[in-house]
C-alpha cells in the first residue's frame, strides 16, 4: 500500500517539524526570559508606610508561627516611661506585671536605662505579629515599632499568603540586596 506509506512519511515529517518548532519556541522563550531574568531573587517585605497593623500577619502566614515579627527602630523610639505600645490603656501601674502589658505573649522586654528612659526590645521567639504594639506606638507614640518579614523564618512563597490577605497591599516583592524596609534607615544591605 504505497498510499499508506506516503501518509506515514508525511505524518512523521509533520511530527518532526512540530518537534523542531517546539524546540525553537522553547529556545525563544528561554532567550526572552533570560534577558528579563536576573540571579537576584525577590523576597516579600512589608512596607511600614502602608501597614495598618490589622493582625492578618499573625494568622495568614503559611507557617504555624508567622514569619512576620515586630521591629523597633531605636533611633526613632522615645524610650518613654509610659510606653503606649507596652502598656494597656490606663495601666494599673507602670511595671512589667502581666496585667499591665498590651502584648498578649509578653514579647516586649522593658529595660531601665536611666531616669526616665526605658528600652523596649522585641523577643522574636515570643512575638506573634498581632500588631497590637505597632498600633499603640503609631497612634500615641513615635511609630518606631512596625512589622517586618523576618527572612530567616520566611520560606519565600511564590505567592505570599499574607500578601493575599493584606487589606492595604503593604506586602511587596523586594530585591534580595534590600530585603528590609526599615523605618528611618538607609535600607541598602
Amino acid at each position: 500500500m504505497p498510499n499508506q506509506d506516503n501518509a506515514l512519511d508525511r505524518r512523521d515529517l509533520i511530527k518532526k517539524g512540530l518537534h523542531g518548532l517546539a524546540l525553537l519556541v522553547t529556545g525563544g522563550v528561554s532567550g526572552f526570559l533570560a534577558e528579563r531574568s536576573q540571579a537576584n531573587s525577590y523576597h516579600w517585605q512589608i512596607d511600614p508606610s502602608k501597614c495598618i497593623a490589622c493582625g492578618n500577619c499573625a494568622t495568614y502566614c503559611v507557617l504555624e508561627e508567622s514569619a512576620v515579627k515586630c521591629v523597633n527602630t531605636y533611633a526613632m523610639c522615645g524610650y518613654c516611661n509610659l510606653c503606649t505600645a507596652f502598656f494597656e490603656p490606663a495601666p494599673k501601674s507602670l511595671n512589667t506585671g502581666a496585667e499591665n502589658q498590651l502584648c498578649p505573649t509578653g514579647a516586649i522586654l522593658r529595660t531601665f536605662i536611666e531616669e526616665p528612659y526605658y528600652e523596649y526590645k522585641i523577643d522574636e521567639s515570643l512575638c506573634i505579629a498581632c500588631g497590637k504594639c505597632v498600633k499603640g506606638c503609631k497612634e500615641f507614640g513615635n511609630g518606631s515599632l512596625y512589622l517586618q518579614v523576618r527572612h530567616d523564618r520566611c520560606v519565600n512563597c511564590n505567592q505570599c499568603a499574607i500578601a493575599v490577605a493584606c487589606p492595604t497591599q503593604a506586602l511587596t516583592r523586594v530585591h534580595r540586596d534590600q530585603p528590609y524596609l526599615l523605618k528611618g534607615m538607609d535600607n541598602k544591605a
Binding site: A75, Y79, G141, N142, K183, G184
Partner: peptide, 17 residues
C-alpha cells in the same frame, strides 16, 4: 519612605542619654 518619615509624628524626642 521619605514621605513616611515626614508623616511619622515624633511626639517624644529621642532622648540624650
Amino acid at each position: 519612605r521619605v514621605a513616611l518619615i515626614a508623616s511619622d509624628i515624633q511626639r517624644f524626642p529621642p532622648p540624650d542619654f
